[in-house]
Amino acid sequence: MQNSAKSVFGAMILLIQHLPHLHSTVAKREQFYDKFYSKLRHFPHLCSFKFNSKAPLKCFCSKNQTTHEAFQGFSALPRDTPWDNDTVWSTMALYIFSLHIPLSLGSLSLVSQLMHMPILDPQTKALSRLAIQTLEFILTLLLLKLTAKPNYRFRNFFRDNELCSKRNWIFASAFGVGFLLSLVFLTSLLAERVIGPKAVSNLVLKEILDCSNISRTACFIAYCVVTPFLEETVYRGFLLASISSEMQWQQAVVISSAVFSAAHLSVENSLQLFIIGCVLGCSYCWTGNLRSSILIHSLYNAMTLLLTYLS
């Protein structure tokens, strides 16, 4: 132990004496290393040291391996969320029972009473639906802002974190759309063979699309712009991100997709909605931002509108 200490001390003295040569040319640096190594032979405990005479003396610092330890491998969602875990489900219940269900079920009848029209024409229905969806989106953002942590800046809600910027959300969106359409097509084909062919599932939507250009435009904006932003903000940006902070991301995707399906109040389409929610949830988990799931949702709704219009 004493010999090792003397050897290290002697090597340090040699290195300090020849320190000015480290910033010289390669030839001088090579001479320094040869001279230094020849003197180092007098210290047997350090004779196994090797030096590279072609490269300057450098310090290699390893990166912190725990930089992304808050992420769960596949999932890019951070553990720290803008909402406390104790308030997530109460906020979700407040949204569903105070905003979503009243505006979805009773809004058109209220419009009918205000306009003194027993039956709304398709164009009025389309414009009313667009206005109601926009109102629900604004009120939802306000609700999420009010229930977030006091020190949280809500404008950061739609921003990427460090890991998100390294993942291609456009590629994820393209893959998600293709995978979702293929999956829905296969499930629809299977259901058609088991149950039989199904007529147009939404006659009201078909009527709106066949009415006028104004009704079609309003319907497109409502279904392909406002609805994707609204639902992805609630079910992925809020619910999925919040519950994934306290469980595995796979479990969070399944739970949020089940809530997403149930909130549509459609037993007939519940399985298909659950599958859609899972695909959107996986896309959001991998990319870590809402742009991917919003784009997939928007393109899927646009395809649905097109098929309904052509049917």
Results as ranks from 00 to 15, higher is better:
residue 3 N to Q: 12
residue 8 V to M: 14
residue 9 F to L: 13
residue 12 M to H: 07
residue 12 M to Q: 12
residue 19 L to W: 13
residue 20 P to C: 12
residue 21 H to E: 12
residue 25 T to G: 06
residue 27 A to Q: 10
residue 31 Q to L: 12
residue 38 S to L: 15
residue 38 S to P: 08
residue 38 S to R: 15
residue 42 H to P: 05
residue 45 H to Y: 12
residue 47 C to R: 07
residue 50 K to G: 00
residue 52 N to S: 10
residue 52 N to I: 09
residue 54 K to G: 07
residue 55 A to G: 04
residue 55 A to I: 09
residue 59 C to Y: 08
residue 64 N to Y: 10
residue 64 N to Q: 10
residue 69 E to I: 15
residue 76 A to P: 04
residue 78 P to W: 01
residue 80 D to E: 11
residue 80 D to C: 13
residue 82 P to Q: 02
residue 83 W to P: 10
residue 84 D to M: 11
residue 89 W to P: 06
residue 91 T to Y: 01
residue 93 A to Y: 06
residue 93 A to Q: 08
residue 94 L to N: 08
residue 98 S to C: 14
residue 101 I to S: 11
residue 103 L to C: 09
residue 105 L to C: 02
residue 109 S to N: 15
residue 109 S to R: 12
residue 109 S to T: 13
residue 114 L to F: 13
residue 120 L to D: 03
residue 121 D to Y: 08
residue 121 D to C: 10
residue 122 P to A: 15
residue 123 Q to M: 00
residue 124 T to E: 07
residue 128 S to I: 11
residue 129 R to S: 09
residue 131 A to R: 01
residue 132 I to D: 04
residue 136 E to H: 09
residue 137 F to E: 00
residue 137 F to A: 14
residue 138 I to D: 03
residue 146 L to F: 06
residue 147 T to Q: 07
residue 148 A to S: 15
residue 152 Y to D: 03
residue 156 N to P: 03
residue 158 F to I: 05
residue 160 D to C: 15
residue 160 D to A: 15
residue 162 E to C: 04
residue 163 L to M: 11
residue 163 L to C: 02
residue 165 S to N: 13
residue 171 F to L: 09
residue 172 A to I: 03
residue 172 A to K: 01
residue 173 S to Q: 02
residue 174 A to Y: 04
residue 174 A to K: 03
residue 176 G to I: 00
residue 179 F to C: 12
residue 179 F to G: 01
residue 182 S to Y: 03
residue 191 A to V: 14
residue 192 E to F: 06
residue 193 R to L: 12
residue 193 R to F: 11
residue 193 R to C: 05
residue 195 I to L: 15
residue 198 K to A: 15
residue 200 V to L: 07
residue 201 S to D: 13
residue 202 N to M: 08
residue 202 N to L: 03
residue 202 N to W: 01
residue 208 I to N: 03
residue 210 D to C: 05
residue 211 C to F: 15
residue 212 S to L: 05
residue 212 S to A: 04
residue 214 I to L: 15
residue 215 S to D: 02
residue 215 S to T: 05
residue 217 T to G: 15
residue 219 C to P: 04
residue 220 F to A: 01
residue 225 V to A: 04
residue 226 V to K: 07
residue 227 T to F: 02
residue 230 L to Y: 13
residue 240 L to V: 06
residue 243 I to D: 11
residue 245 S to M: 02
residue 245 S to G: 08
residue 255 I to Y: 03
residue 256 S to G: 03
residue 257 S to G: 07
residue 258 A to F: 12
residue 264 H to A: 06
residue 266 S to R: 14
residue 269 N to H: 12
residue 270 S to C: 09
residue 270 S to P: 05
residue 270 S to W: 09
residue 275 I to P: 07
residue 277 G to H: 00
residue 278 C to Q: 06
residue 280 L to W: 03
residue 280 L to P: 01
residue 282 C to V: 04
residue 283 S to Y: 00
residue 287 T to V: 05
residue 287 T to Q: 07
residue 290 L to T: 06
residue 306 L to E: 05
residue 306 L to N: 06
residue 308 T to A: 07
residue 308 T to G: 06
residue 309 Y to R: 00
residue 310 L to D: 11
